[in-house]
Design a protein around this nucleic acid. Structure first.
Lengths: 348, 348
DNA sequence: TTGAAAGCGCTAACAG
DNA sequence: CTGTTAGCGCTTTCAA
């Protein structure tokens, strides 16, 4: 930069002004400087700039690397966030942090990043409390129970569940079960989407006079199969199932077929918040409520940058999943519909 | 840091020595300093440190965000690399860069990162040439045609293909086709794994007296279906297929079933370099050669850090995929085996 | 509109 | 073993 200044016959400060467009500079001076920069192949050193300006232009995406990390929503978040960050000329670092608030405090304390995106937020998340105590802005992807004073973007679980239920009810189903993640699995207990979706399911079932049946399934195929057997044992009149997990859905569909309740003819299956790409790979294609992950990733970055720039920040943004019709849901089979209540349920 | 020095009654330099363990310090002095740090909650500022030491301890993972990014291998690379980076107390930034060498040069020129991991490397990759001209160390995940002077980790495609072929041959198959990615698709043309796997397939087929049949399929289900029809039209005696792409495999299996060549009884299907988690979701489970992505991610980071530390670097590491037996491959159906050559082939 | 100068918070010779 | 000091490359008052 000093070289550029010399070559252009100006001071180093003036060079800084044109590089950052931070003060008015005569067109001619600007020209000379720009030419010098081009000739010398000048590239501003972001580290020095960061030290001087207290702005690194680096954002962190803090996320646990659990099994659930493999899901569609996560992947989309990352792509969305990384793309948005790039467009805003920021860098994105990945921080694999568990539920450990202390670890996050240490990382933030390094002052490497201007802001943090926090993924896989639990209803009561120690990381959120940890971040609250620091002066680094952050945005949640997901949300805690109490969101006062927080900025977040999230899937509108209730609305997404409503889309799912409506689809099934429109097809004539009246016995609709819900298969949730198993709270014994890492990352599931207290994780917002699991809690909220079950709650939404129960409320909607109540509204529609559907007897709620909730089962719990781990994120693997064997567990999905087991869940299918449980379902038929506990609530044999069920004609449609809403599942949270892709692997679970796979096991469920496979086992239902084996138990002579082939999908979609003798049972409808709908997967919550998968990706359309993934759903298409099934035979028949999986009916799903697709995750708005890409958009949420973008929104999260935008919300964070607004905070950083002191702009009026969007403190909350919810997006609803979209129904992607596939071949695993169909009209309710004749003779199995109609009212009637079973009391089956596990763990109330 | 100055405060710490004052509190401990030493100079700021001494504090630096204990923080970085860079010079011998009397145990007592060290103690005093450490106590002062703890009391004041001192956290070294990594930006300042980076500027002074010319070492940011940040690594970049440069990768295109194409459709192929959704694959199993990519995901595993990231997890492996991020985890290894963290263990080595480094940060990992994600750079979504296309095939554009210039963009990479700009990013590297910012001097934000100490080294670069380059993913999705093509045989002739402009980004590699671009990086060669700079003084920032880099490691390839994948490799170019000419690897002299380069450091890389990669899947041993030839060996992995051999595992696949051996599995099928052991089951009695003699008519084994290969479905490769379609070079018209973004990111496929000139992409190492596609080129090398086809080459390996042809060589192995030659060795075993198998008449090579190669088809090309885009990364979506419809294309997989189409490929199934082509396959039966071109090489009806085929009893087993090796596929590169997961979505393609899905379409292939579905369409084969429709065409009365149900998998695995009337056709075996094996997927190259998927993940075991994913393969398990199929019904029957997909037989696959699992990708060693996790390990490669780790190895890449290690190789890069070795370069950075001036340690003798591992310049090349290859890892072979492992056979994960599933339900989509089986013994060759009676009456369809035996020698015989068809000449079918697309695009030679 | 431009320049001088004081840092940003830390590292790394070098000297003691 | 510890302290002094000169930067790292840029931003940002403040003054001209």
């Amino acid at each position: 930069m000093r070289e550029v200044a010399e070559a252009a016959g100006v001071s180093i400060a003036t060079v800084s002004f044109v590089v950052n467009n931070t003060k008015p500079v005569t067109p001619e001076t600007r020209q000379r400087i720009e030419r010098a920069m081009a000739e010398l192949g000048f590239r501003p050193n972001v580290v020095a700039r960061a030290l001087a300006s207290r702005r690194t232009r680096i954002l962190a995406l803090a996320t646990p690397f659990s099994r659930l990390w493999l899901g569609a929503a996560t992947r989309e978040f990352i792509i969305g966030a990384a793309t948005a960050a790039k467009e805003a000329r920021h860098h994105l670092v990945i921080w694999p942090v568990g539920n450990d608030g202390d670890e996050l405090v240490t990382l933030v304390g390094q002052k490497l990043v201007d802001g943090v995106l926090l993924m896989s937020v639990a209803l009561d998340d120690p990381r959120v409390e940890a971040l609250r105590g620091l002066d680094t802005p952050f945005t949640l992807i997901g949300r805690t129970r109490d969101v006062t004073g927080l900025h977040y973007v999230d899937i509108d679980i209730a609305a997404s569940m409503r889309v799912a239920m409506d689809h099934l009810v429109d097809l004539g189903h009246r016995h609709i079960a819900f298969v949730n993640g198993d709270r014994d699995e890492e990352g599931v207990a207290g994780f917002g989407p699991y809690v909220r979706s079950e709650q939404a399911y129960r409320e909607l079932a109540g509204e529609r006079g559907i007897d709620p049946v909730v089962l719990y399934c781990r994120s693997n195929v064997a567990s999905g199969r087991e869940t299918a057997r449980e379902l038929l044992a506990l609530a044999p009149r069920t004609t449609a199932v809403i599942v949270q997990d892709e692997a679970g859905a796979a096991g469920l569909v496979a086992e239902l077929k084996r138990l002579d309740r082939a999908v979609p003819d003798r049972m409808s299956v709908l997967s919550m918040l998968s990706s359309a790409d993934f759903a298409e790979m099934w035979d028949p294609p999986l009916t799903t409520i697709s995750t708005p992950g890409l958009e949420l990733g973008r929104l999260a970055v935008e919300a964070l940058l607004q905070q950083l720039d002191g702009r009026p920040p969007v403190s909350a943004a919810l997006r609803t999943g979209v129904l992607v019709p596939g071949g695993t849901t169909g009209r309710v089979p004749a003779g199995t519909a109609g009212p009637g209540r079973s009391a089956a349920r596990r763990r109330t």
